[in-house]
């Protein structure tokens, strides 16, 4: 059930340079959120920016939920100015989250940069439901952009780090680091990050016979199924299934259904 709710901001603190975590009080949204779902935040009361900002829900607990975001433009810059005690209108939870997959031996979470956002809540759910304590691969440009390392460790997850510049963990791209983890047919890989990273993780999973569930990002107007603005191309033959909405059919997809050669929905 999706709600349209004025939520009180409990904190909005920096977690890395240009990265924030906003914790909001909104009981109905917190209660109904499944791991991998997202919400639409109104960044300001005015008309510029006009649209809400889609954000993965990081975690939800009791009457509160959190989002992780990177300051990239005017909307997120305005969100970063919001103070504890302020009110933000939130629409959510939205979309279809990660299907929890019992019957797999290994569960590997792969987060690239801010793409880590929906994964802490997923790790908690996998542990809570006694499915697995997932292995986590965190990838980022450099050490100071690695997010949530301690959060995963405190859940008991093993965490492998990889950075583009080698300032922490392996100096490698996510897919290369994942290969070292030797995923197999009984492995499910949950991935969220830049399209190029997810495409390479998808290809590796096809090689190793692993199931790959990818959480996609797209520019959105409505965030809730009506505008058809956030579509991605699929591998389906039928014309009516060739384009799927990230907001409604996703944001989490079986990676085999996405046409990774089509180009990014976010430019």
């Amino acid at each position: 059930m999706t709600h349209l709710l004025d939520c009180t901001v409990l904190s909005n603190a920096e977690v890395a340079p240009e990265h924030r975590r906003m914790i909001l009080r909104g009981e109905a949204i917190a209660r109904d959120t499944q791991p991998g779902q997202f919400c639409m935040l109104e960044s300001n009361p005015g008309l510029i920016p006009f649209l809400r900002r889609p954000m993965s829900i990081e975690r939800s607990e009791e009457d509160r939920f959190s989002v992780l975001y990177k300051i990239v433009g005017e909307g997120t810059r305005l969100l970063s100015k919001i103070q504890p005690g302020d009110t933000v209108n939130v629409q959510g939870p939205l979309g279809k989250g990660f299907p929890i997959q019992p019957g797999y031996e290994r569960h590997i979470l792969v987060g690239g940069g801010i793409g880590i956002a929906p994964l802490p809540g997923l790790a908690e759910a996998l542990i809570r439901q006694n499915i697995a304590t997932p292995e986590v691969l965190l990838a980022a440009r450099s050490r100071d952009m690695l997010l949530c390392e301690e959060d995963f460790k405190s859940l008991g997850c093993s965490v492998l780090l990889t950075t583009d510049d080698g300032s922490a963990g392996m100096k490698a791209f996510a897919a290369d680091a994942l290969r070292e983890m030797k995923p197999h047919e009984k492995t499910v890989v949950y991935v969220c990050g830049p399209m190029i990273m997810m495409a390479t993780v998808h290809r590796l999973c096809m090689e190793t016979g692993s199931l790959c569930l990818a959480s996609l990002e797209a520019h959105m107007a409505c965030g809730d199924s009506v505008c058809m603005g956030c579509v991605v191309e699929t591998t389906f033959e039928e014309e009516f299934r060739r384009m799927v909405r990230v907001c409604h059919d996703g944001p989490v997809f079986d990676s085999r259904h996405i046409n990774w050669n089509a180009g990014a929905p976010v430019s």
Partner: peptide, 29 residues
């Protein structure tokens, strides 16, 4: 008359106090 898959993405771009769209009439028919 027939379902239409619509245009390739990106289909929307936010602009001051509005947005541009090029959905291309994706519809179920």
């Amino acid at each position: 008359l027939k379902p239409r898959p619509g245009n390739k993405p990106p289909r929307i771009s936010e602009t001051p106090a509005g947005l541009l769209n090029a959905i291309g009439l994706q519809n179920v028919g």
